[in-house]
Design a protein around this nucleic acid. Structure first.
Lengths: 337, 337
DNA sequence: TTGTAAGCGTTATCAA
DNA sequence: TTGATAACGCTTACAA
């Protein structure tokens, strides 16, 4: 093929500090100072410069500024699965909070074909940090991230490593609380829908249920694994409910609880009359009119606040000791218990 | 393994091409060439350089490379609301597809406090493009984006402007198809739950319903606005169903259809016996066991494919004429019609 | 308060 | 095939 004829139709290069400086009759550094809060510039001159900048659409090039400063203001956000309501709400909140700090989230979805490769490519940018939604990720991949050398904040799975800070919900406590609630309401025959083995949250949540039952002198009557999806919750609940007589079904997350709720309905069980069903996370769907699910709130806002706080501290002092923040879940009583 | 020699030190600066060059006893340019596919380097030397790079953790600094090239490989993805299942699934798919192109999505959520400000700040990066999920955004904000001067791809709301390409689902056709289906099944008394006036999709979807009814010589019996949320769908449906006798309720999206489904149940209406309820989008929840919603598929995969294609073409030839790709929706028959 | 000049880490060009 | 060199656009000592 031949060379393109509209080569001159190239995208116009953006205005630079020099462009503005020439137009304003000042030096390039004056322009830079006009954009630097607290720098020494005659305030009248600054006004003139900013005016011309606005007219020409000039903005300091963040690539050049970042190169100079050794900081990109870019933050990788690595998340398990954007199709999970919890993860996507988490990402939305986080993106908002980061933009307040003028940090920009680059989104990486674990479900991508070769994420490892992609993550490595992304590291060509001198990222300020890597924020990991590790609750929905395997230990292996999380550990790999911790070795990249950039500051990391892991949410949902505690990770040991240099410059790795942690935010984590007290999963076990949450489950103990809600199981206690069910016990106090007279439930005695408990079933449990567990999460994927490789997720940290799964084992902690299971431990919480077992602890509450143990203290009450009760045994788990039946148990079934799930992959945390609605469908697998549905299947697991059907199988469990058809082979055991239960009066309470604790589910490792809301999605499986929602599946279980549907299964109970299909089996003509009365919820909460015959059977209590509870979940964990308090995703948006939990309060939908059809479900009104009693659940444990895994607070996204608190998690995001904690991440932001840890990030700010780490950026101020990169050598500071690693820190972990634990979040308290709370029971949300709706209509399925 | 993990050497932590400078625990008090500032974050170590990353290895540069010079570091690797010195170690390998070659010039900086040789290192650069080793990382440039198809550049002239002795293949043995390249191997040695890459080995040393791997050992030192060297990767070319994307900020410097981008500064040089006048291209950042960064793409802004501006989305209406990450709490909407459609938008978040869209973002997930898009992020995956972009990483295959080595383009990195920076996520901006419209619901942020001062998004306009944030977007402007983000433009300090020489972004390759701005991808806009405009279906869930007002015209005003979309037009503002079109004026930023960087290539833009709008999905879900056609936008006129230089270097603005469009991807859009044939909303009206989809609604016409599903309304035709209901008519062919004998439905005659139609209600409609409309979307927010300021969203482009709302009016198109409404037009599609009206066209099908018109051709069949039917009138819309009743109509109620929503904000596209489940709750507003629930409220709108309750209000509509209590004042009009309907045998079909067409909803402008799946969320409102799901709300309507719950309202119908609470009113002891038999779906689909007494009343058909259908939605639009085919979000993940539409196929959940409790809903099994008949709906119109608004194909995310096709939209993402189209966006990627448009992006590639625009990057190759920035001056090319603007292009629009229209996507065909399809009816998904489940159990509510 | 202002301007000059020296990098930041790359890559493209050019001469060897 | 290789190495020196000149940008890319910015910030910040340092000098004026």
């Amino acid at each position: 093929m031949c060379s393109d004829r509209n080569k001159d139709a190239k995208r116009p290069r953006r205005a630079t500090a020099q462009t503005v400086a020439d137009l304003a009759g000042v030096s390039r550094s004056a322009v830079s100072r006009a954009f630097t809060p607290g720098a020494y510039v005659d305030s009248e001159k600054r006004r003139r410069i900013l005016k011309i900048a606005a007219d020409t659409g000039y903005q300091p090039n963040a690539l050049a500024a970042g190169l100079k400063a050794g900081q990109s203001n870019l933050v990788a956000v690595f998340v398990g699965n954007m199709r999970s309501p919890y993860d996507s709400a988490f990402v939305g909140e986080l993106a908002q909070a980061l933009s307040g700090l003028k940090k920009w989230p680059i989104l990486i979805d674990r479900t991508g074909a070769n994420t490892d490769q992609a993550l490595r490519e992304l590291l060509r940018y001198p990222l300020d940090a890597l924020i990991l939604r590790g609750g929905s990720m395997s230990e292996e991949i999380v550990d790999r991230c911790a070795r990249f050398g950039i500051p990391m904040i892991s949410s949902g799975r505690p990770v040991q490593g240099p410059r790795v800070d942690n935010v984590c919900c007290r999963n076990a406590d949450g489950m103990t609380m809600i199981t206690d609630l069910l016990i106090s309401r007279g439930r005695r025959r408990f079933g449990f829908l567990s999460g994927p083995e490789e997720f940290y949250s799964s084992s902690r949540r299971r431990a919480g249920v077992l602890q509450a039952l143990d203290r009450a002198g009760l045994d788990l009557v039946a148990e079934h694994p799930t992959d945390y999806s609605v469908d697998s919750g549905y299947g697991a609940a059907r199988s469990l409910l058809s082979r055991a007589s239960l009066d309470a079904l604790v589910c490792a997350n809301d999605a499986t609880a929602i599946g279980a709720l549907s299964a109970a309905r299909d089996l003509s069980l009365n919820v909460p009359g015959d059977l209590a069903i509870v979940g964990f996370d308090d995703i948006a769907m939990a309060k939908w009119p059809t479900f009104r699910l009693t659940t444990v709130r895994n607070p996204i806002d608190a998690a995001v606040d904690a991440i932001i706080a840890l990030l700010e501290r780490r950026l101020v002092d990169p050598g500071r000791p690693e820190e972990s923040i634990f979040l308290d879940p709370s029971v949300i009583e709706r209509e399925t218990h």
